[in-house]
Design a protein around this nucleic acid. Structure first.
Lengths: 247, 247
DNA sequence: ACAAGTGTTCCATGTAGTGGAACAGAAGGG
DNA sequence: CCCTTCTGTTCCACTACATGGAACACTTGT
């Protein structure tokens, strides 16, 4: 299936780093000639571009233009950015917006970074699992139970960044408690040295399609600071109208 | 080339309207069976999705996640959104951000809409020519001369929304005057009944990669209001640091 | 000047994308 | 309520075109 090749090539750029033909060829295990042709075509259509004078490629503007259509249909960023900035100024830690990608994953779409020198700074756009980290859990906990069970069914367990081991049962009880209290919390689950709190964001139909979370380095972003962050997130979630459409 | 088929299918969704297999098949003049397979694959990869219970498709979240990577590398929106809101509140008309797509075109990536009932509201994401409309001209006027000449070379002339006829020469003198005064102005070039003013946005290398413009309905957005808008845009362009990277 | 890396071009091979037709399922009207 | 007419879906023979490998060209660094 050629689309898979195309997507595989595009996914190589998820880290944001410009790549050459050979690097892409290695990461995708496709022949250099094949990669060259694919990249040329993607560039012709504006999905990749190369800095003038460089041989390296990076994601191009056509991607932005297409996604602008998708984004404008459910404009979480426009709706939430002013409040995210306000939250950052109030709490002092990085405020992040995550969007659900599919049944298994989400990605950080946007972040308003803390001004501290030591701060949380997420990788934008890279898919991450829903079952670890406060951004993902805040979404997963409020999805339909059937969907959550599907995800946890084929699940053998996973290790957190802190080295802790999570079984599907431990995740399930975690999610249930999140559902009860209304917010998620995590410490060193995906990012070593980081901790955070998050709340779900619902669309007009009441589906959890995104989450807003605040994360910071472990010593500084203390229990009490997290308590304040949770209160701020909750009051914000209440006042912000639900999105017009599911993404 | 299969990528063209994929892009053609994706481009059908540029208007933002959900589409069925048959509609896509008509717009792309591909066989229904072919469209069905392509759409299924695009959906499998998250580039399209269908509202639960509907047969219609629309752009999916994977597009957002990939473009978030591209967007985060040169975050015009994050940089400019607060100022765009401020501009909208000051001038009262819709403020728009356009990004250059290639040598011929740009697209509106973002708009902060006027509160007036009668207001400019652009189609987000749809590519538009650079040589008409204040958003495009503000970019084109400040591109390298060779590039502008390439665009105007194979140019036979074009009609504005008002019915006026523009030759490549008339566009050239227009662009030169824009370059001289530092801002662009247009009236009913692309949108009947609309008028606007715009300024270019440069990246760190000094290339014009985007534009910020303000547009409104003809009777209301008067000469004097446009004068104020230009002054506001210019002071904003001066204070806002140049972008870190070309898009 | 050479070596080791890169990107680029070419070609025989066979995978997989193609349109058409035939089928199924939903929607709408009489 | 049945029949018509749309949808979307599946299947298949045909062949276009994507594929990997090798050979070539170009850049970089030592």
């Amino acid at each position: 299936m050629l689309i898979d090749r195309l997507v595989d090539v595009l996914e190589c750029f998820e880290r944001g780093k410009p790549l050459g033909i050979t690097e892409i060829s290695e990461q995708t295990s496709l022949a250099k000639g094949t990669v060259h042709r694919i990249v040329t075509n993607l560039r012709r259509r504006g999905f990749l571009e190369q800095k003038t004078g460089s041989k390296r490629y990076r994601l191009g503007p056509r991607l932005l233009s297409l996604s602008a259509v998708a984004a404008s249909q459910n404009d979480l960023v426009q709706r939430l950015l002013p409040q995210m900035i306000q939250l950052r100024d109030q709490i002092g830690e990085t405020v992040l917006l995550s969007i659900r990608l599919d049944e298994q994953s989400h990605f950080t779409a946007y972040q308003v970074e803390s001004f501290h020198s030591i701060r949380m700074s997420a990788q934008i756009g890279k898919p991450r699992p829903l079952f670890l980290g406060c951004g993902g859990k805040a979404i997963l906990a409020f999805r339909p139970v059937a969907e959550r069970d599907r995800l946890l069914a084929g699940f053998t367990g996973s290790q957190t960044a802190a080295g802790e081991y999570r079984t599907s049962d431990s995740i399930r009880t975690d999610l249930e408690s999140i559902r009860r209290v209304g917010y998620s919390k995590s410490t060193e689950e995906l990012t070593p040295g980081a901790t955070g709190v998050g709340v779900p964001i619902f669309d007009f139909a009441g589906d959890a399609i995104a989450s807003l979370y605040i994360a910071g380095p472990l010593p500084r972003f203390s229990e009490t600071a997290q308590g304040e962050a949770i209160r701020a997130l909750e009051s914000m979630a209440r006042q912000s109208a639900s999105a017009r459409e599911a993404v």
